[in-house]
């Protein structure tokens, strides 16, 4: 069943928190993965792998580079699930 944007954000925040140690409430829609959350490319790929698993979506590498902010990822995953 497809999740709402709210549910995707909550799920993504948990994954990012596990990977980085940041609190889940720091993972906000407007935050940039690289500039605000200090996530390197290897961590980003780890987050993508967990997202694919958790939300049952496929995020090809060529799309990952367009996911600049948390909001970008939430929209992408929500659309991909629909």
């Amino acid at each position: 069943m497809a999740a709402t944007e709210q549910e995707v954000l909550a799920g993504l925040a948990e994954i990012v928190s596990e990977e980085t140690g940041l609190p889940t409430d720091a993972v906000l829609l407007e935050k940039s993965f690289t500039d605000d959350l200090d996530i390197d490319s290897l961590s980003m790929m780890t987050i993508v792998t967990h997202c694919e698993d958790k939300f049952d979506v496929r995020i090809p590498d060529e799309d990952v580079k367009n996911l600049t902010t948390v909001g970008d990822a939430v929209s992408y995953i929500t659309k991909a699930q629909a």
Binding site: L42, M45, T49
Partner: peptide, 10 residues
């Protein structure tokens, strides 16, 4: 393969 984590080698 898509579930193998990127940190596996390091």
């Amino acid at each position: 393969a898509r579930r193998v984590l990127p940190m596996t080698v390091p």
